[in-house]
Design a protein around this nucleic acid. Structure first.
Length: 273
DNA sequence: CTGAGCACCTGAGGGC
DNA sequence: TGCCCTCAGGTGCTCA
């Protein structure tokens, strides 16, 4: 479900509510997510202060005072949200987190493509889940030259490259489609045919679409909500994603939907080349 | 090694 | 109402 802007939104919302607090109790109802939830989580992650909540790629991380970090991934259908403790349990509410001051957070994930595990904070980026991750698109390291070099040394469709986390993290199906539209590049354009100028432009558009979405609390295309149950607003600004057969907002040509790597790609056949 | 294809899992929505 | 199909914000394995 969520891409970088949605995880960033959740991260920013959780920080003021959880920082410097402790989980008094964690209850696991179902542990067989994509990566099984460790048996000892209910012991190791309680009674220790939450010092920092941050994001790497589409992972949400909570660093605890005891040197352990909680690692969350929401997959396609995951939600991390506060609710009343008395709210009846949905059958896909896999974990309950109670804080010492009475907050109640739940992890819900119907498809179970997400994960919740732990890792040593000091060696987090040597962790199996992180060690092969590429560049953060909102960092200064990610610039036009970096992207152009990447395009030169790979031979694939540009959209596949943008969505490949070993090169660039956090960009999923929505933002890849949107950034390519803003750059007038069709998703199937072969990377080696991307010029330095295209790459610089695409890089700027990736940053701006991600930043604009974060500013609007993310994109709610189907059912994304943040930790307060609020949907995002960026879907109001989508140019192509989910708009198959509808007129292009720039030139009125019908938007095309094609399948690429088993995922839908949307683009304007007139504006994007 | 690289890149494409598919599996993992559940639910929603449309057509008949 | 039900059945069968397609589709869904991700990732990682397998195969050529």
């Amino acid at each position: 479900m969520p891409e970088l802007p949605e995880i960033e939104t959740i991260c920013r919302k959780l920080t003021p509510q959880l920082r410097n607090k402790k989980f008094s109790n964690i209850t696991v109802y179902r542990s067989d997510l994509r990566v099984p939830i460790p048996q000892d989580l209910t012991i190791t992650a309680t009674k220790s202060q939450i010092q920092k909540i941050h994001r790497r790629s589409k992972y949400l991380l909570m660093d605890l005072a005891n040197g352990l970090s909680l690692i969350f991934h929401l997959g396609m259908s995951g939600r991390l949200f506060f609710t009343d403790k008395k709210t009846p349990r949905n059958k896909h509410d896999h974990v309950y987190f109670d804080t010492e001051d009475g907050l109640h957070l739940r992890l819900r994930d119907p498809r179970r493509f997400g994960l919740l595990t732990t890792g040593a904070t000091a060696q987090l980026f040597d962790h199996k889940l992180f060690k092969n991750l590429g560049c953060e698109p909102l960092s200064s390291e990610f610039n036009g030259r970096f992207l152009h070099t990447l395009c030169q040394k790979t031979q694939t469709a540009i959209k596949s490259l943008l969505m490949n986390a070993k090169y660039i993290v956090g960009i999923g199906n929505i933002y890849a489609s949107e950034a390519l539209f803003l750059s007038n590049l069709k998703p199937s354009r072969i990377t080696q045919k991307i010029t330095a100028e295209d790459a610089a432009n695409l890089c700027d558009n990736i940053k701006s679409v991600l930043n604009r979405s974060i500013a609007r609390g993310g994109t709610t295309f189907r059912d994304y909500v943040d930790s307060d149950g609020k949907p995002g607003l960026h879907q109001l600004e989508l140019f192509v994603y989910g708009r198959g057969n509808q007129p292009c907002k720039k030139c009125h040509t019908p938007i095309k939907r094609v399948t690429q790597n088993n995922r839908s790609s949307f683009f304007c056949p007139q504006c994007q080349r």
